[in-house]
């Protein structure tokens, strides 16, 4: 019989879904700008620029809220992979995804109130939220204020390396999001984890 535990506070759920919507909007408009072509039916360039800029600024504000709220609530600690045995626990988790799940084995490290994330989640979430997303936001802000960009870099226009970094880091975040949504189906039932992200209650 399944049991329930309240794991996720309201602010975290609100941030998560705001972040998710903004990321999707930024991905669609960002792709429309980067792959702009008269032959492709994408979001019109001028409209995509406006939406991307507004959503980008909103993401920067949302991220600032995330960092402050994490510090104030102490939730930042959840993102820190805790030694010893981080690599071993990552391997156990990977093995579960690659093999154990097909055999109906139980989750090796189910979430608890104290430890929300398994080691693999902590490593990946930390990398995305504290490396990739800040890179996307900072390079995006340079795009917004191009005078911040150096005049020249590596013998090229200074904005070019910034733009490439923005593109690659943005793609990494969206690539993570695709996998993240799929992994969301790995609860007790395929919809359990999505429900948890709405209600805050985790089903064991």
């Amino acid at each position: 019989m399944s049991s329930r535990e309240y794991l996720l506070p309201l602010w975290l759920r609100l941030w998560h879904w705001t972040n998710a919507v903004l990321m999707i909007v930024l991905a669609v408009t960002g792709a429309s700008l980067h792959f702009a072509d008269p032959e492709l039916k994408l979001v019109p360039f001028s409209l995509a620029t406006t939406i991307h800029e507004i959503a980008g600024i909103a993401l920067a504000v949302t991220y600032a809220f995330f960092v402050v709220a994490n510090i104030v609530s102490g939730n930042w600690w959840q993102y820190v992979p805790k030694p010893p045995g981080v690599l071993h626990r990552c391997w156990v988790q990977t093995r579960y995804y690659m093999w154990g799940i097909f055999r109906g084995e139980p989750h090796p490290y189910p979430p608890t109130k104290e430890v929300n994330f398994n080691a693999l989640q902590a490593v990946v979430y930390w990398t995305i939220m504290y490396v990739a997303v800040p890179v996307v936001i900072l390079t995006g802000l340079v795009f917004f204020y191009p005078t911040w960009a150096p005049e020249r870099m590596f013998g090229l226009d200074g904005l070019l390396p910034i733009a490439m970094l923005h593109y690659v880091a943005g793609a990494a975040v969206i690539l993570f999001m695709v996998a993240h949504i799929y992994l969301g189906t790995m609860g007790v039932r395929p919809t359990s984890l999505f429900r948890m992200m709405i209600t805050g209650w985790h089903e064991h």
């Binding site: 700008l33 792959f35 072509d37 013998g155 090229l156 226009d157 904005l159 070019l160 733009a163």
Partner: peptide, 12 residues
């Protein structure tokens, strides 16, 4: 374009 500007959609 590389030496003087990054043009979105064109510099790829």
């Amino acid at each position: 374009y590389l030496g003087s500007a990054y043009v979105i959609g064109a510099t790829r």
